[in-house]
Amino acid sequence: MSEPRKHHYIPQFYLKNWCGEDGRLICYKRIRSEVMCEPVAPISTGFQKDLYTLAHLPKNLRQAIEKDVTADVDHRASVALQKMIATKSTDTLTKEDRLGWAQFIVSLPIRNPDAVADIKETSTKAGLEKAYEQAKQEFPDWAQGETFGAEFEESVREDPFTRFLSDNYGLMVISELMLNPDYHDIILKMFWWVMDFSSAGISLITCDRPYMIFRSIGHPRGLIYLPIGPRLGFFASPDPMKRRQLLNQNIALVTKEMNRWEAKLAAQYVYAADRHHTPLIMKYLRAA
């Protein structure tokens, strides 16, 4: 059995909700000044090869994060998502469903290629700098030379275990963040609801960075939004009045505002169930 090397940072189970009868959804992307629009299957988009692959391990262990962490998060989130879509509500979610969905929400901002690269670079640099400063304190005479920094880094890289930790530490941090109960608890303590946008006359879009938060995660009036289909949106907030405030707004205007934010958040791709969003996406989608 081949190891999974196409790592979907936008899971297929999520994108399938925008698919038509042919199993494809509409994918928008900008190439220079032109916006391209084409139907794609969820398996063919929102992934990067070897995104979570661990280095310096046997082949059968390199995909441990993809197989044991993100796959588990996505499986449990897919169960919760299907319940929300079927009932247009969060009321039928079990405690386990809510935890799975909270983990998925937490994972979205940190599992994409930009975030993975940033976390890997930052964590590796911080680890090396800490070790470097410690070495200077323990070996002050040796550390006086001009070439100490380069020699130290080379010696670190020559040690197999240190090299393994250095090259994989960022991915370990990402796994830890995905499964950190402190982050889940923040979301689990919020009020959750699903909003039906069917009467808006406009379908909801999503993108390759779909997680959206108004204000901050810890703000008492903060608001999390994630489209979960062309007609349904998931919301969470510490403020129980947010739901009523949204329901009292013009549904078409709320839809347009949510779509505007999704188009602006996209890094490369915007996804939709139809081709009616070209003017909006041309205005807000940045160039790849």
Rank of each mutant, 00 (worst) to 15 (best):
F152V: 02
Y183C: 00
Y169C: 03
S155E: 13
D22Y: 02
I65Y: 08
A77I: 04
A272Q: 08
A117N: 10
L188F: 03
V73A: 01
P39E: 15
S237Q: 01
K242C: 03
A252N: 15
T206N: 10
P140Y: 05
H7F: 04
K83W: 05
E133S: 13
D22I: 00
W101C: 07
D182E: 14
S203E: 15
I224H: 00
V270P: 02
D74S: 08
D182W: 09
H184K: 05
M178V: 06
V254K: 07
R32G: 09
M258C: 12
V79Y: 07
R5A: 06
Y211D: 09
F47N: 03
M190N: 11
K242L: 05
E154S: 11
C19A: 10
W142M: 14
W192V: 09
K136P: 08
N60V: 08
S175Q: 13
I217Y: 09
K130P: 00
R244P: 00
P11N: 15
T45R: 03
Q249N: 15
I119E: 09
P58M: 06
Q144Y: 02
L177V: 12
C207D: 07
Y269F: 14
Q137A: 09
L246Y: 14
E21Q: 12
M258N: 05
Y211R: 06
T206C: 04
E138R: 11
K242R: 09
W193C: 06
F197T: 08
F139R: 01
L51K: 01
N180D: 14
I85L: 15
D274H: 08
K283F: 05
I251D: 14
G222M: 00
I281P: 03
L265H: 12
R111E: 10
G145M: 05
W261Q: 07
E38I: 02
R275D: 15
K88S: 15
P210L: 02
A200M: 07
Y211S: 11
D196L: 07
G149N: 09
L99W: 12
T122Q: 12
W18S: 11
W193N: 14
